[in-house]
Design a protein around this nucleic acid. Structure first.
Lengths: 257, 257
DNA sequence: CGATAACTTGACCCGGGTCAACGCCGGTGG
DNA sequence: CCACCGGCGTTGACCCGGGTCAAGTTATCG
């Protein structure tokens, strides 16, 4: 039912209650893996700061840190003061909201080059989700002030931020229309296809059945049953534990119903 | 099944196909109701341009027009070049996306002081929804260039735009967690409560059962049945055709289940 | 006042929610 | 090294919410 992995958030060092269950809390300090070298970042061209000139980087005095998150660790929590933005270098995180009854709904996921914590663009903003790593995940952390200041002087970055915002909105809308509409079979097929979109290979790593349920608004059992059925029908071929190759054309047939 | 009202979009004067059914097309020209007088706008303090000084308005040369939309008329269509932004003066619009199978999903609604067409902030952007009036609706239309130019010079407006974006994102997430999760009873209760939030009275005008279904991911029949049941249980009191008073406390009980 | 759309209700039945059992690890401690 | 245990995935049995199809009724509008 509820999520029970390890948890902890940057700047939230103390224990805390999380929707009806206690979780072991760990400061992100433990996840710290060094100061980032943005100038030589391998993601430089695709990441948020693509448009910055070398001279811009000289103005950066606040530290930009890198973190390595273990699965189940959280980057930030709902309601925390949003003082940092993040970009994902590797791995996957889920953005979770909780309902009053304690059940969780995953409203988006973030992968390589995605930006997290856009809420920090508003001064005084707070995070609207829990961001929790689903795999070993590396992120870079920027002070919100830094991004705001650079953004107001640099039209390139400014446009990039706007574009990220639009992308997040498009994602949100797509989760509604694609992943919360239709039969369980359709939703799962659409989720699978989405995982390999704009990828060279049809290989993908699956989420836990519980997380899939929380993404699609179905139960863990239905997620499991459907995935198992897809495997039997060879729509999915399991190459290694929980890694699959997809039969894209046939999954598309199912997705559109 | 599909929506069948009148339809037409600004800058899209010709007939067009709309997801498997033809609709009568009408230019927005017919809906034109004058040039806006922003300086003396009654919404001046709550609307997008709240932060602009009188001097800023002098720089505005492109026309800002007002339109009055009849129910069923569309303001813009998915894929149209986004060259204008809109604010809603009165009335309600739905933002619709269509699935490959032709069914529609309403991903958001816009009401007084809400901003539509933020997509226009990206140059070269296209609208991501169909925006269709659900009631007699008045909107103001701003050239996107104007908003972009003013925004880059005016930090106040800039912040306001960011804030609007964040609001849209929050709305989108809420539709997922509140309106696409749980039983039909719960979803409808949550939708009703949402309609009267931050309102003095508990009175509200309901949507068509079909639209409610498209908002909640349920069928027209289930929407109708549930509303009828709520009426029988006096959770809703019909004051005039399709206008209701809500029993807020008891609806809250249902909403949280 | 006829026509068309929107709403309501009934009957039927199936997808998927619920509860429970079981197998398969990977980790922990004796 | 092995026994034990807690998670996670899978599967079965059951049954209910809500989808589907089909009237019938009530608004709305020309």
């Amino acid at each position: 039912m509820g999520y029970t992995g390890a948890s902890g958030a940057l700047g939230a060092p103390n224990d805390e209650i999380q929707t009806s269950q206690m979780v072991k809390s760990v400061t992100l300090r433990e996840a710290w893996s060094g100061e980032a070298d943005c100038l030589n970042c391998s993601l430089r061209t695709s990441v948020l700061f693509a448009g910055l000139a070398e001279s811009d980087f000289e103005q950066i005095h606040d530290p930009i840190d890198q973190y390595t998150l273990k699965p189940g660790t959280s980057l930030y929590h709902t309601g925390d003061a949003a003082e940092h933005m993040f970009t994902v270098r590797t791995g996957v995180l889920k953005l979770v909201q909780y309902l009053p009854d304690g059940s969780q709904r995953i409203v988006r996921i973030a992968r390589t080059t995605d930006v997290l914590g856009l809420e920090a663009m508003l001064e005084g903003g707070t995070y609207q989700h829990d961001a929790i790593a689903l795999q070993p995940t590396e992120v870079c952390r920027f002070p919100a002030r830094l991004v705001r200041d650079l953004g107001s002087n640099n039209p390139e970055l400014h446009r990039e931020l706007i574009s990220r915002w639009q992308r997040a909105l498009n994602e949100a809308d797509a989760w509604l229309t694609e992943l919360s509409t239709g039969s369980a079979r359709q939703r799962i097929a659409r989720l699978l296809l989405r995982l390999v979109r704009d990828r060279e290979s049809s290989a993908c790593q699956l989420f836990s059945r519980e997380d899939m349920g929380a993404m699609l608004g179905i139960t863990t059992e239905t997620a499991s049953r459907t995935i198992a059925e897809f495997k039997r029908q060879s729509l999915l071929v399991e190459t290694s534990p929980n890694r699959f190759l997809l039969d894209i054309p046939n999954l598309k047939r199912i997705a559109e119903g």
